[in-house]
Amino acid sequence: MGKDRCIIIPSYNEEKNIVSVICDIRKYHDGDIVVIDDGSQDITSSAAIEAGAFVIRHPFNMGYGVALQTGYKYAVEKNYNILLQIDGDGQHSAKFIPELFNQVESFNCDVAIGSRFHAESQYRAGFLKSIGIQLFRKIIWMITGEKITDPTSGYQCLNRKAFEFFTNDIFPCDYPDANVIIMLHRAGFKIREIPVEMTSNPDGRSMHRGFFTISYYLFKMFLSIFVTLIRKP
């Protein structure tokens, strides 16, 4: 069973958090943990190896999406059946790992997404980010008819069919987000949300921050959704 499951952690300059994230995961998972170090300048790699993870190092920084895809490619290569992805910054609470695995293993869905908005989580999104999330919720609902509350969640569990699908070049490596959910839906995958707890990033930094970054993000996401829609599924 151990070889069956794998947890991937895309991380970039997470030397402070990575060890505690791995230790937390160990409490709920005895299989393989793979850290994808996206060209960190700090000691993320060695810290992760010493904490007992397997590390794949990118030669330079290529972004969160590329790191995820490297993880998917690794999982395909090593013949894992189920993959769980969790952020390396300690934002996601590890205690939901068994539940996420369980949803996919019991064939309830192809992709289980950990949603921070179902649970009484301590998570507080910034003003702009909440607007963005609301907006993409609506868009996803209009296009796919699915009620996804947390389209930006990076806490997901995928079965082999789903992560193999993402090793393809169509995977939007720059910002995998709401567009990925639409892509999955159009390819016929079954998606399900599981309530999880998330904390705001402990360091107070997040992928989406600053007015311009968020505006640019919104623009890119609209574009990406549009492109996903005009392409053949």
Binding site: S45, I56, R57, P59, V66, Y74
Partner: peptide
């Protein structure tokens, strides 16, 4: 991107 991913995967065991 694909090349770097390939290199990372090939180099991972050694590292």
């Amino acid at each position: 991107k694909n090349l770097s991913q390939k290199i990372s995967l090939l180099d991972a065991e050694r590292y």
